[in-house]
Simulated assay, not measured.
Amino acid sequence: MTDSWMIKYLAEGIGTMLLVLIGNGTIAAVTLKGSKNNGMGGLSIAWGYGIALMFPVLVFANVSGAHVNPAVTLGLASAGLFPWAHVAQYILAQLIGAIVGQLLVVAIYNQYYLKTNDGAIALGTFATTNALEEDGHTKAMINGFINEAIGTFALVFGIIGFTTNFFGAESIKWYMQAAAKQGANTSSPDVMSQIWASVSGASASKMVGALAIGLLLVGLITCFGGPTGAALNPARDLGPRLVYMVMPQSVVGEKTDSKWWYAWVPVVAPIVGGVIAATVFKLMFK
């Protein structure tokens, strides 16, 4: 049964909502005053985001592909691995999902924002900034662009590799074609047992792939989180930043500038990195 495109859009929205809810929820838990997890550090955030990505990949990979990231969607489309006709809908669903996910984080941690009453810390639970900001906007943007583009290249290249090459679909197709060429009944017990074994292997491969993607993000946030916090996802940064912009102080405590001067970096740089990654992957393996 093939899921309709509306179901795929919904899956992308819910998947991105879960990503932001768990990921930015972890940041809030670690950084906001009064939280029992306050002070657990960057490694906790990396693991929180790794699990936050693994969750929708496991749930929605067979439905929408579980892109949950415009950089992934645009990268795949640019390499001819995803239809352009559905790119805008996927990105819109991802952005809406990110906004809803952040609203849920705010609902959970409202009182902790008020206890913290620090605009910089609050913004950090919504969107990314650059550690070089005090050295000037130009340095911060250049460093942020390089960091986000390289980090997203690694993320998208890994995601495509983990989910394209070895998910078992090729072996299932091979069994069916080989049986048909030999004139065998594809519904016979012997052929079906081979197909079933292949399906089981594909399912196991999916689990391993999802785990690998989650662990990859843990490593990438640990590596690339120092300069920028490692957005690696335009929706994950832009959606929550929009939420922060409209939130009153009565909800998030003291507010700081939303830093729109920097906001283009975690949107454009991941897209550039994702497109390059998908293109390189296609040139190598397709």
Rank of each mutant, 00 (worst) to 15 (best):
G48V: 04
L283W: 10
H137L: 14
H67S: 00
I121N: 06
M176V: 12
M284F: 15
Y90W: 03
I276C: 10
E254R: 11
M6S: 10
T279Q: 06
D257E: 13
L155S: 12
L103R: 00
L103E: 14
P248I: 15
N233C: 05
V72K: 00
V243K: 07
G50R: 06
I142K: 01
A85R: 00
P240C: 03
L76Y: 00
V252N: 03
Q194H: 08
N69G: 12
D135A: 10
D118K: 00
F153C: 11
V63L: 10
A85L: 09
G41I: 09
C223N: 10
V272A: 05
Y244Q: 03
D237T: 06
G229Y: 05
I195C: 05
Q94Y: 07
L76K: 04
A154Y: 13
N24L: 14
V20N: 03
A212F: 02
A197T: 13
L19T: 04
V199L: 14
A122K: 03
D118T: 15
V57E: 01
E148A: 02
L242E: 11
S205F: 05
V268Q: 13
F224S: 01
I172Q: 12
V106K: 02
S171F: 11
E148P: 09
I91S: 00
A180K: 08
G101E: 00
K33A: 10
A71Q: 14
T116K: 00
S203T: 07
A98D: 01
G183A: 09
M176S: 09
S250Q: 05
N147S: 14
I195H: 04
K206W: 14
N233W: 02
F224P: 06
G209V: 07
G158Q: 09
K33T: 13
G48R: 01
P234K: 03
I14L: 10
I99V: 15
M245N: 10
A231V: 13
Y113I: 11
G97A: 04
S198A: 11
L215Q: 07
G201R: 01
K181F: 12
F281A: 01
W174N: 15
N147Y: 00
G158L: 05
M54N: 08
F167V: 12
